[in-house]
Design a protein around this nucleic acid. Structure first.
Lengths: 344, 344
DNA sequence: CAACGAGAGTTAAACGATTAAATCCATGTA
DNA sequence: TACATGGATTTAATCGTTTAACTCTCGTTG
């Protein structure tokens, strides 16, 4: 593959001049410029980005660290990151930790987990990426668990408690608030909640939004209306069974994610009730299952692609030396209304 | 960040010696070796991979070109690629074309499509990757449509007709054959087919497997039992309507993918029939929808991760100078039996 | 004891760019 | 005529490695 040296020889100038032509930052006469361009066309010359990176100490590559590329929102977030970076001439070096494949228990083994994350960060650092976006699924993982890295780092999806860091997340509180209000607006007064894993911050935020909406509407939330699940289908089914056996069963159930809502469906149908005539159900996350269920599940769609876009924007701003102020950027979600709720 | 020069100064040797210690390819006395290692620990020195890449003319980076990272099998394939490469010390530079977002019509605008693919390949080439894996969804796109590239290239998922190239795909013919045989073994004699888009090679291969199984069993396939759809839900529904209106309606339907099978379900239920009591249904691809449907859809799971793993293996072999013989590696699929079929 | 070889280490030239500083040369001006 | 001006171009150092070729020092051997 041709080099600048060869182009220089071919067009009878020095390599410096070739470089000047290419960068356009220095005056070069039209005549030589043309000659150089001709030689470039002729030899199909391409700038060696490796050499440039070495000299400039910049690779124009952003490392994207993901815990599991097969995870649901991950591909969309990466898509957003990619779109933003592409426009600015950056490329994506992907580091896929395959956490779930390496860890059997999703919520434990935190130190092991930190090691894996650290080695992924290390790999990206060694590749001399200009910046890193860490697409973290659970905030517990990213709280001071990994060694600080000397490269600008932005968190996406989960939020970091590290005060100096930037993270781009979605609005759990408000979305839970809004979807609860949707049920209230339909006249429901007995609205139960099936929560996710207790020590997840997403769960506590969604709980907060739910409580806020209920309080604001002056609705009492009996203790037994708050059920703790573990984000999985079966816990949704179990907790719904418990809810339907109460003296005053709820007329609406807010499951904190769609798989639990699906479990909810199963239990309700098993009890001989129909959705939404007897019980309304709403979910969260807008996973594919939400549109597969019958009736279609009303749920909250996360702004995954926007999270990626915004995280990339933030990182680029920081790379361009702009002072980055915000600690945690929260993007709004969108409620997807389907057929699983009905006026009471 | 520390360089070899500093390490050399710190330990009182030349940079060459430091390099020798690190590479281990030359004799270095225990004493100096220790001194150098100590300096390395002390300064937290990390080899500059950019400089190494420049010198060695090898980046240890593989470009992975995908048409749309959000596409269903893509993340799994990338996962497989990643796993294989990681073990060999390679990293993944991701180039996401976002084809579906740029093209409105999925099966047309082929020249536009070729341009996009070419620019993606160009970007990877410019980044000086050591090899490329092109995760192509449709074979029509990769038949001589893009400029040949001077870097080792392996196709994954779709197959290339280019005789000199290596592609890793899955066994359409045999899987269609096997799932048809499953229906035959259950006593079905009237088995209809809802095919995918007519000029897709996956569709013609699946058709071939179906025909082979039917012929082998001595079963006649009336012309009106072969219906052409377009891979989408609605075509499944339409074609099933047509099938159920025949004088002799089929007792089993093989939809060439799961969304069409889902459409099939809808039509069957609308006709007041039940699955699998009245009609058995099978799909293909094992998309998420297959397990969401009721009753669960029996379908064919593609070896996505294995495709990625194998493609990466092939590429690495080629990079290590081994002669790569095979033109098209076909991996077996796995039938997932759920509840959508029943003995006739 | 001269010759040789092996082991340990160094020198210096790449790899392919960027860029500050120097040089060259044609103008314009006092 | 002498000199400043400034555009066009070149020189050469630099980025951080790798590695062929060289030097130096011992120890072995005929």
């Amino acid at each position: 593959m041709a080099t600048m040296k060869e182009i220089a020889a071919l067009s009878g100038v020095s390599v410096a001049t070739v470089s000047h032509v290419l960068s356009g930052k220095k005056n070069v006469s039209k005549a030589t410029c043309d000659r150089v361009m001709e030689a470039i066309e002729l030899t199909n010359y391409k700038l060696n980005t490796i050499a440039k990176s070495l000299r400039m100490n910049k690779t124009h590559i952003i490392g994207v660290l993901v815990e599991d590329i097969c995870g649901l929102p991950v591909a969309e977030i990466v898509d957003g990151i990619n779109q933003c970076l592409e426009e600015s001439g950056y490329q994506v070096l992907l580091s896929n930790l395959r956490l779930l494949q390496k860890l059997y228990n999703r919520y434990e083994q935190l130190s092991q987990c930190a090691n894996i994350v650290n080695s992924g960060l290390q790999l990206l650092e060694d590749a001399r990426v200009d910046g890193i976006i860490y697409v973290a699924m659970h905030d517990r993982r990213i709280d001071g668990m990994h060694q600080p890295v000397s490269i600008p780092l932005v968190y996406a999806y989960a939020e970091s408690n590290d005060p100096g860091s930037v993270s781009v997340t979605y609005d759990n509180d408000n979305s839970a608030y809004e979807i609860t209000r949707l049920l209230i607006a339909q006249g429901h007064r007995h609205i139960a909640l099936i929560a996710g894993h207790a020590n997840s911050s997403a769960a506590s935020r969604r709980l907060y939004g739910y409580r806020q909406a209920m309080d604001e509407a002056g609705l009492n939330v009996p203790q037994e209306y708050i059920r703790w699940g573990d984000w999985e289908y079966h816990s949704g089914e179990e907790q719904t069974d418990a809810l339907l056996s109460l003296t005053i069963p709820p007329t609406a159930i807010f499951a904190m994610n769609d798989p639990m809502a699906a479990g909810c469906y199963a239990a309700i149908k098993r009890h001989g009730l129909t959705i939404p005539q007897d019980v309304s159900v709403v979910g969260f996350d807008n996973q594919e299952i939400a549109s597969c269920l019958f009736p279609g599940l009303t749920t909250v769609a996360l702004p995954n692609k926007e999270i990626g876009l915004t995280a990339a924007q933030q990182l680029l701003q920081r790379l361009q030396g702009q002072a980055v102020t915000a600690a945690n950027i929260t993007l709004p979600c969108r409620i997807i209304e389907r057929e699983s709720t009905r006026k009471q």
